[in-house]
């Protein structure tokens, strides 16, 4: 760790970083607000088609205009935000369960279980995540739940390896050795001594995985193997709009802008969390 020179060097970056965190909070807050209140605000049906209003620019009734089928872009964007955030958060939770929790249980259960389970993670890691999720999704069928599970499996190894790294660091700690000497069962050592220390590492990692899960969901839906056509996630909206981009550019630009803003927000948040979780660099984050 190079402490002093780095601090001196990047002293100015600290303020940029905290501003970044503020930007992230504003974007995420806006997204949550849009997801919760958006559909009620516009009072329109995201699926209602109105061919007469196809490709119309923004108006008092349709704040962001209408897409090629005359559907209200704002309402679709709001419902899409809700679905997209839900899938991404649920998929990350699934990845934590499949990766960190299963991985730790396997580690606690002994050498053979660890080898087998981590061998599985290595297989998953040796595949491009988008290709793996594609294959899994076709196997599981379309829909929100399979989508969540497929993305969860694809990102599970990341959490498994974080969990193992923390476990290895913690298991050499004095209090874990003391618990062992007192013949505490492995699972109780895991839950009472290691898990609390794991929390920060997992949260930091989650901030990296959530935006990737959002992108993966969008790409899969764009490819037409994510959600069913009646479900307006951002990826689905993009897939619909890309063919009509010349006549209804806002229908494409809005979900792309939303996707970019949310990944940016999570990137800034993750950066902040990473610095905040490292006590040696905490001073820099302020």
């Amino acid at each position: 760790m190079r402490i002093s020179p780095v601090c001196a060097d990047e002293g100015g970056a600290g303020s940029v970083r905290s501003r970044g965190a503020a930007i992230a909070v504003v974007i995420l807050g806006g997204a949550v607000l849009l997801a919760l209140a958006g559909p009620a605000l516009s009072g329109l049906d995201p699926l209602a088609q109105n061919i007469g209003g196809a490709n119309m620019p923004p108006s008092a009734a349709h704040w962001l205009g209408q897409d090629h089928l005359g559907r209200d872009i704002f309402t679709r964007l709001a419902v899409g935000t809700r679905l997209t955030l839900f899938v991404a958060l649920a998929a990350t939770l699934a990845a934590i369960l499949i990766g960190a929790v299963l991985g730790l249980v396997a580690i606690a259960s002994g050498r053979i279980a660890e080898t087998l389970v981590f061998g599985g993670y290595d297989l998953v890691r040796a595949m491009p995540s988008i290709l793996l999720a594609m294959t899994l999704l076709v196997a599981l069928g379309p829909g929100i739940l399979p989508l969540t599970l497929a993305i969860g499996i694809a990102y599970a190894p990341i959490f498994a390896h974080v969990a193992r790294a923390v476990w290895r660091r913690e298991s050499s700690a004095g209090y874990v050795a003391a618990a062992r000497v007192m013949a505490a069962p492995p699972l109780s050592i895991l839950s009472r001594h290691v898990a609390p220390n794991l929390f920060g590492a997992i949260v930091t990692q989650a901030a990296i995985v959530v935006p990737r899960a959002i992108t993966t969901e969008s790409v899969l839906s764009f490819f037409g193997i994510g959600v069913t056509p009646g479900t307006p996630t951002w990826g689905r909206m993009i897939a619909d709009a890309v063919r009509h981009a010349e006549t209804a550019p806002l229908a494409l630009a809005m979900p792309v802008a939303a996707l970019s803003a949310i990944t940016l927000a999570f990137a800034l948040l993750g950066d902040r969390l990473r610095l905040g979780s490292d006590p040696l660099r905490r001073g820099m984050a302020a």
Partner: peptide, 10 residues
Amino acid sequence: IALPTFCVGL
């Protein structure tokens, strides 16, 4: 970090 290639491409 912030902009996935998918977004940039679109």
